[in-house]
Amino acid sequence: MSAETAFQRPSPLLQVRGLTHRYGPHIGCRDVAFDLYPGEVLGIVGESGSGKTTLLKCVSGQMEPSEGSVEYQTRDAGLIDLFRMSEARRRLLMRTDWGIVYQNPRDGLRMRVSAGANVGERLMAIGDRHYGHIRSEAVDWLERVEMDIGRIDDMPHTFSGGMQQRLQIARNLVTKPRLVFMDEPTSGLDVSVQARLLDLIRGLVRTLGIACVIVTHDLGVVRLLSHRLMVMKGGNVVESGLTDQVLDDPQHPYTQLLVSSILPV
C-alpha cells in the first residue's frame, strides 16, 4: 500500500526541513527532515531522551522549533509553514484536520465531562449546534473504537486505561482528520490491551486513510503499524527507511543495538 502511494508521488501532506530545537545549550533534536504522504504511517523510535517527543511537539505545532520549517498541505492554500500562519488558523487546523493522541489520556481528555461530550466537543468547536446530531456521531464513534455505548454518559476517570486511550482516539477522529500524531499511545497498558488497541489503530488508519506520526520506544508497535521508520539518538536521526528494511537489516550500530535488545519471548 505504501509502495503504491510512493510510486505515484502525490504531494506530501507534511514537509519538514532542517528542524532543530534547542533547550538553552542542550539539543532537543537536530536538522531533521522528512516528508509524510497522505495515508502514510511514520514511526519514530529511539531511547528515552533521544528527542522523539521534542520532534513530535515541533511538527504538531505545540512548540515552535528554534530553526527549520514545518509545512502542512492545507485543503485550500497548499503547503503553508505552521509557524507563519496565524495562531487562529493553526489552532483551527489542530482541532479539525489534525488529531493528537497523548501518552497520558489525562492530557488529551476532559476528565470532568462525560465520554459523549468528550467525543462531541470537537464537533461543537467547529459549529455543530444540533444536539441530536452530536449525540449520534458520539455513539457512532464510540462504536467504532469498540466501546460500550451504555457508558456514553460516564466520566472518563471511571474508565480503564485502555478505554481512556480508545476514547481519546474517538475524540480525535470525530472531525475526520487527515493527520494524527500519537505519542506512545500504548505504553502503560498491559500487553493484551496493547494488542487490541494496536489492532484497532491499524484498522482505523487503513480504512480512513489517515496519515500518522507515531512516536514510541516499542519496536513491536512500529513493526505492526508503520510503513516507514526513523531512528533517533541524541537528537539526531541516525537511520530511516522502510520499516521492514530498517528492522531486518539495520545499518547503523545504534539501530543494530536497538533491534538486538528486544527481549525474545
Binding site: 495562531e87 487562529a88 462525560s114 461530550a117
Partner: peptide, 22 residues
C-alpha cells in the same frame, strides 16, 4: 483570553450537552 480572542467557544456548549445528556 486566547479562547475569547480567537472565538473558540465550542467548549461552552459542552456544559449544555452534559445537561441534556443527564
Amino acid at each position: 483570553r486566547k479562547m475569547h480572542a480567537l472565538e473558540e467557544y465550542g467548549a461552552m456548549h459542552v456544559s449544555l450537552y452534559e445537561d441534556i445528556a443527564k
